[in-house]
């Protein structure tokens, strides 16, 4: 759906990150597959119930957020456990602009994007000096602190404190014959495809190669003239921007923001989605998003009281059985299929 179109990004293998073999251009079959997927994505809202449309929209929102995280972790090799904070920033920006200032929701997205880019860039600056474990720590602290910052009493007038903000659901514009669930689905799909295209192009551009060079060997990259600090901060900014846009969309779709929706658990979900989808593989974001949205329900089916424990066990199993996420599984399957032919 939103992030499923396009080629596999050909990321080289590197020491601390799961190896991704170079993509073999087999455009024919792949184009057909993703074309079909897009066709399904477009027809889906006309043949299914509103609740399922809503759930699929939420999946796409998560996919966009994971896509942003993937740009940072998978492509640039910087670690973040705190992307929930940028998601929250995007969500609150949209909510406050819509409800307090009465802005049209379409305008909140670019504003949230700009704000999150700046915030990400600024957080990326001190993060430049941090590597690996230290960056994980700093971003972990950011994630844990976020709900407290959102509850801060001096800003209660804007943020609504603990209660949060309720958002009115926008309907379809221009008299389109769609209900608001369907409209939000298409809006999210369109923005998701746009952002996917953006990230895909970044990865395959000079900038993307600089990002990957920094991930694989920062010293070699800087000796070849890559401005390491600028690129790392930029990667943080763009990544935060994409995750922030996902946050705004999420706020509009769910029609509610409150501090306790943006706890450490949110950042964890994004990270889990990234690892499940395959680090560095852009379409994996969608598979990861499906996992984080639906697997908790599956875990709840298995045992209501022990849902968290079931989720944990499932996670451990996935890491054992498919250490490289969906990326690795799909590659292995495609290879086997080719050998059969």
């Amino acid at each position: 759906m939103s992030t499923s179109e396009g080629k596999m990004s050909d990321l080289g293998s590197s020491a601390p990150w799961p190896a991704g073999a170079a993509a073999r251009p087999k455009v024919g079959a792949r184009t057909i597959f993703f074309g079909l997927l897009l066709l399904v994505a477009v027809t889906l809202p006309f043949i299914s119930k509103n609740f399922f449309i809503f759930q699929t929209t939420v999946v796409m929102v998560y996919a966009i957020a994971i896509l942003g995280l993937n740009l940072l972790i998978g492509v640039n090799g910087q670690f973040s456990l705190g992307h929930g904070a940028f998601y929250a920033l995007g969500a609150y920006t949209a909510a406050i602009l819509m409800e307090t200032f009465g802005l049209h929701y379409a305008w909140t997205l670019p504003i949230a994007a700009a704000l999150c880019f700046v915030a990400g860039f600024l957080f990326g600056l001190p993060a430049l000096r941090l590597e690996g474990v230290y960056l994980a720590l700093a971003t972990f602290a950011l994630a844990v602190t976020t709900p407290q910052l959102l509850k801060l009493s001096p800003f209660e007038g804007f943020t609504g404190g603990v209660q949060g903000i309720v958002i009115t659901k926008p309907g379809a514009p221009f008299g389109l014959p769609l209900n608001s669930d369907q409209w939000l689905y298409f809006l999210t799909l369109a923005i998701g495809l746009l952002l996917y295209w953006l990230v895909h192009n970044i990865v395959h551009s000079r900038t993307g190669r600089a990002f990957m060079a920094i991930r694989d060997n920062p010293i070699a990259a800087s000796s070849m003239g890559v401005n390491t600090s600028l690129y790392k901060a930029t990667a943080f900014g763009v990544s935060a921007m994409i995750t922030g846009v996902a946050g705004s969309l999420g706020a509009i779709v769910i029609q509610f923001v409150a501090p306790d929706s943006f706890t450490f658990a949110l950042s964890v979900q994004l990270l889990v989605g990234l690892v499940i989808g395959g680090v560095g593989w852009l379409p994996g974001a969608l598979i990861g998003a499906v996992f984080v949205v639906f697997i908790p329900n599956v875990a709840e089916e298995i045992s209501k009281g022990l849902a968290g424990a079931c989720y944990g066990v499932l996670l451990i199993l996935v890491i054992y059985l498919a250490p490289q996420g969906a990326d690795g599984v799909i590659r292995a399957a495609v290879d086997r299929f080719k050998r059969l032919l």
Partner: peptide, 14 residues
């Protein structure tokens, strides 16, 4: 890889 370890820790946490 590092990320797998982090996910394992998250799983233990849950």
């Amino acid at each position: 890889p590092v990320l797998s370890h982090v996910v394992i820790f998250i799983a233990l946490f849950a």
